[in-house]
């Protein structure tokens, strides 16, 4: 459960987040919106790269904004970036182990946890293969494995399926859907692929110009006229 209230971010004259208020309860939650709506800025606030001028973020009853960025990761915030960030020089195992050894939320042995995460994302490869030798879809899966290893509490996925063909996106979707149940984390998924969002997320929030436009069950939200207008850019005509 994470509750965001009145979250405001300003870069000079630009206000990418404007008194955003939203709750994400459990499971996999979608966060969608047109380009520039503030989705990535919101993730940057959660992971500590951007300091908001106003507002609060409470995650599982703790004030997230008070923690420095690398401590948030130890507390249990994980994220992926729009551009894939798996480390080429390291093996798949080392990529995942690296996140595990900097997290305080560990349960079993490192080996078990790391191999478990690789298995969870259905990566059917030698864990000691270098990431530099993998294809785009496999690298994305390595990133997801990094995001779920070692009992995270909050997993932020920023366009994890960008650039993947439909078939591989569907496989990735199955993995993302299974995160809350298997890993016990709250997942927030940002993506422009509506079929992925409706496949993975029971609830979805829509951002537009830094404000919450709509939120609720994904099917209803995607049918909402205001949401359709925001995506098609015909809001003025309707008003």
């Amino acid at each position: 459960m994470i509750s965001v209230s009145d979250l405001t971010v300003r870069f000079g004259g630009v206000t990418p987040l404007d008194r955003m208020t939203v709750n994400f309860e459990r499971g996999t939650c979608g966060l969608i919106g047109p380009n520039g709506a503030g989705k990535t800025t919101f993730f940057n606030v959660l992971s500590g790269f951007v300091r908001p001028v106003e507002g609060t973020v409470h995650a599982f009853d703790e004030d997230l904004l008070k923690m420095t960025h690398y401590r948030r990761a130890r507390w249990g915030v994980r994220r992926t970036f729009q551009t894939e960030q798996a480390i080429e020089e390291l093996s798949v195992y080392d990529n995942v182990a690296m996140i595990h050894e900097h997290s305080k939320m560990t349960g079993g042995s490192r080996r078990e946890d790391v191999l478990g995460a690789i298995e969870f994302v259905k990566l059917d490869i030698d864990p000691y293969a270098k990431v530099g030798s993998l294809g785009a879809a496999q690298r994305r899966l390595v990133e997801v494995a990094r995001a779920v290893v070692g009992k995270p509490r909050l997993v932020l996925l920023d366009e994890p399926a960008a650039g993947l063909p439909d078939e591989e996106t569907a496989l990735l979707g199955d993995v993302i859907r299974a995160i809350p149940e298997h890993m016990g984390a709250l997942v927030i998924l940002v993506d422009h692929d509506m079929s992925l969002v409706s496949h993975c997320c029971e609830v979805t929030a829509v951002l537009d110009f830094g404000k919450l436009l709509a939120s609720g069950p994904t099917e209803e939200v995607l049918r909402d006229e205001r949401v359709i207008r925001a995506y098609l850019g015909t809001e003025e005509i309707a008003a």
Binding site: S47, G48, F49, H69, Y70, R71, R72, A73, R74, V77, R78, R79, F81, Q85, I87, E88, E89, L90, D94, A97, M98, I99, E101, H102, S103, R146
Partner: peptide, 24 residues
């Protein structure tokens, strides 16, 4: 070991390594 993995992460992206909990 641990430092080598952390260094590889820092070289690739400092933001991503911070997000991964590494005290850069």
């Amino acid at each position: 070991g641990r430092p080598g993995r952390a260094w590889a992460a820092i070289r690739q992206s400092e933001a991503a390594s911070l997000a991964g909990g590494i005290n850069t």
